[in-house]
Every structure is written in C-alpha cells, then in structure tokens.
C-alpha cells in the first residue's frame, strides 16, 4: 500500500535521509526503530510532503505522491500523527475532530466522533474542553482521533509513546491493536522497543538517515547483535 524507494533529503548540505526504502501493506503495522535524530520523523515528514525530498519515490496505493502538497497526500488517504502532538489548543475536542474530517472512501464505514469516543473513552468525557486544557496522554489520543476523522487507509504514527506514563502507553497499545484489526495500515516510529514489539508485525531500523536492518519482530528479538548495535537496549 505504501512503498518508499531511494528517499533522500538534505538540510543545507547535510544528508538527513539517505536512500530510505520501506514498505507497508494494508492492515500491517511496521515500526521504524532508531535513536533520536536517526531520521524517523524526517522519513515520515518526507513521505507526507512536509520535508522536500531531494531524491527518491513515494508511491501510495499505486499513485506516486512524491513532491505533492501535504494536503493532497492527506486527501489520498494517508494520515499523519506528528510527534509533538500539535493539537489546536484553542479549539475544543469536537472542533479538533472537525478540522480532521474528510469524506470516507466508498465502502468504508466513516469515523465519527461517537465511534472515536468508543475507542478513546477518556475523550468522550471532555468533548467541549479546549485542547490546551488536556493532559499529555489525552492530547496524544486526540491527535490520533483527529487524524482518523480523515478516514485514512494508512497512518504515519510518530513516537506515540514519547513522554507518556507507562499506564497510558499500555492503553495506547490497545488502541493501536484495535486500529490494526479494523484493517488500517500503520507506519509507527518508536524508540521504545517494549512498546513497539507488542503492536508491530515488522520492524525497520534506521540510523543516521539510512535503513540498516529490516525483518519480522521475532527475527529482531533473536538478533541480539542488531539490537545491541542500533538500539542499545
């Protein structure tokens, strides 16, 4: 469903992405693992058109999307949940969801606020609260819900567990499991291996902007040397 080949990006003269290649199938969760600054967020931004790639190709559902504006990419059904949450703090929970709303593709039951509140019960209790008056965990749920309102077929989920209490991370893992079960493809970026291995099918390791390793989760758990070298846990 999502195929990235030879994706490179530069900042000034520094290479920040170097021929990144990865693939995510429909209904699959792929985790992009790597240290801070390894290029996880940049990969997602480059896919989304938020960082201009200097070379390479991104194909989504058979359509080349490299060089398109972010809003066009989003309209094709690719959702993006940024690392820093970036909810609209002045807008209420319902208004935040409204900003994300896009029509569903034919044959797909559209996400509604009611369905999302079932998935994230804590949000339902604060529909009219301004986003700025929510806790970090609630804000993280809201960013995911907001992106889902666009009825994407695949989402880029950038470090959803960062800075959250372990209890909230557990709830996040459950939500991701439910989304996967509904057929949504997910490209997840993470540093937290314990979290990632529970929710993902496959893993790709990125280091200094380059893909170093790819394989299934069991393979990763067996490959001690790989984990030692790139993840240091």
């Amino acid at each position: 469903m999502l195929r990235v080949t030879g994706l490179s990006a530069h900042y000034g003269r520094a290479h920040i992405l170097d021929e990144v290649a990865l693939e995510v199938a429909a209904g699959e969760v792929v985790v992009l693992l790597g240290r801070n600054g390894a290029g996880k967020s940049t990969t997602m931004k480059a896919i989304m058109g938020l960082v201009p790639p200097s070379a390479g190709q991104v194909v989504f559902d058979g359509i080349p999307i490299t060089g398109r504006a972010p809003f066009e990419i989003a309209r094709l059904g690719l959702g993006y949940v940024p690392e820093e949450r970036r909810i609209f703090t002045e807008l209420t929970v319902l208004e935040n969801l409204e900003v994300g709303r896009r029509p569903a593709p034919p044959g797909m039951p559209p996400w509604t606020p009611a369905r999302l509140f079932a998935l994230f019960p804590s949000l339902g209790a604060m529909q009219d609260r301004p986003g700025g008056r929510m806790s970090g965990g609630e804000q993280q749920m809201l960013t995911i819900a907001r992106t889902l309102m666009g009825n994407p077929r695949l989402i880029l989920l950038d470090e959803p567990s960062e800075g959250l209490a372990p209890v909230v991370v557990e709830r996040m893992a459950e939500a991701i499991g439910a989304l996967k079960a509904s057929g949504l493809g997910i490209l997840l970026s993470e540093q937290n291996l314990h979290f990632a291995r529970g929710v993902s099918d496959r893993a790709t390791i990125i280091e200094k902007g380059r893909i170093r390793w790819s394989g299934s989760i069991p393979e990763l758990l067996a490959a001690d040397a790989v984990r030692e070298q790139y993840l240091s846990v």
Partner: peptide
C-alpha cells in the same frame, strides 16, 4: 502501579 506504572510490560 495502578495510577502510573501499570503492569510493567512497558519497561525492560
């Protein structure tokens, strides 16, 4: 554990 740490799955 209840309010914060959870079951502990998320830690090494």
């Amino acid at each position: 554990r209840e309010v914060y740490l959870g079951s502990g799955n998320m830690m090494s």
